[in-house]
Design a protein around this nucleic acid. Structure first.
Lengths: 203, 203
DNA sequence: GCCGCAACCGGACTTTACCCCGCTTCCCCG
DNA sequence: CGGGGAAGCGGGGTAAAGTCCGGTTGCGGC
């Protein structure tokens, strides 16, 4: 009756399941903080959380799924900033500026979460990657549509730009390389993003 | 004395080792052809090749290493075309045309070898990816240097373009999606590449 | 030809992601 | 409030990646 109608992507998650999910995520973060991401094992996580192995697998499907969930969690804040924060990242600024700001912000975010983001990549078992279109591409596509309404293949262009943004960080940057001068690298990538976008968006 | 001084990346590979390497690669291709890439296991490969497991691991380090070696092997032809083939892919054509032709050719190559290329990606154990700078980026960088000698950060731009080229195919294209109309998809990606490059390379 | 050494080979061993299936717990509806 | 059914839970089981080390084999010098 007084139960509000609401979009449940997983319709009605059971109370104990939700509690366990939170607990598992917290425990995972703790292990990662203490021992680094590659020391996180499914058995270890289950044991330390005081739960069974089956539970962990039911919740996250695969090992990469854990990191994916952690990243989703961290990304929520970031998304909020993009969708409803202050300009130029949030709405209100002209699209080109938003696009540039978005690239810079996402670069920062990815660099700060690099280990988890890389671990969330897996590219083998369940479905490669595109199980849901990456939010990055969606947002870029939206801004591009305002910038270049005459573009014939917005989907491909946004895909390319999303790859040009994430790819260098995720694929070609090893974690060691950024212990020294995270800032310098970040600004360099950000500058390059700005250059690329400005070129790609002129008529 | 009469031993010529030569660059051996692995100095003097023993005869039996070389023979085994070839045999292992051939056996791997056979298994992949018959049962698909995910059915290729280290044990299975060793047994079918009539060798010990230790041998397989010594040669390829990891499972992904096998696919990497297979891809290297396939890529040799492609590289040859790029370095010494007919224009516009090979030398002789103006740089912009070569760049466009390169993207189209690499798209075709990657789509044809998609399963192996994806399996060669791993992103966990030994070193992430960039253990050797990908040949794609090197070539793009070389052509860019002719096209835009005034560009401040050629390294980043070539990195971005390489990611924009490989990323959509490797990361965002699941193998199922291309059973229907490989050609159409290929031309679409090729066209998008041309658009992007032409925009990115204007002064 | 022979010797020492380094590289190679083999296969047993360990670790870990992932599966399975019987039991328990929670939710819904009457 | 109580019963039925589905979802969640537990932990033992399997397969496959990657490690180790003792035995073997090819290679360069004498």
């Amino acid at each position: 009756m007084d139960r509000p109608i609401v979009f449940d992507s997983a319709p009605t998650e059971r109370a104990d399941a939700a509690r366990n999910r939170l607990h598992l995520l917290a425990t995972a973060r703790q292990i990662i903080r203490e021992q680094g991401p590659d020391r996180l094992t499914m058995d270890g996580l289950a044991e330390r959380a005081g739960l069974g192995k089956g539970t962990v697998f039911r919740r996250f499907r695969t090992r990469a799924g854990i990191f994916e969930a952690l990243l989703d969690d961290d990304e929520r804040d970031f998304q909020q900033q993009v969708l409803a924060g202050a300009p130029p990242l949030g709405p209100g600024a002209p699209p080109l500026e938003r696009l540039i700001a978005y690239g810079r912000a996402r670069t920062t975010f990815l660099v700060e979460h690099l280990e988890i983001a890389r671990a969330a990549l897996d590219g083998s078992k369940p479905v490669p990657i595109g199980h849901r279109a990456p939010s990055s591409q969606i947002h870029i596509r939206m801004l591009l549509a305002q910038l270049r309404p005459s573009c014939v293949d917005l989907d491909m262009l946004s895909l390319q730009l999303a790859a040009a943004l994430d790819g260098p960080i995720l694929l070609y940057l090893s974690s060691d390389e950024l212990t020294n001068s995270v800032d310098e690298r970040g600004t360099r990538i950000g500058q390059a993003w700005q250059d690329l976008v400005e070129r790609a968006c002129r008529p």
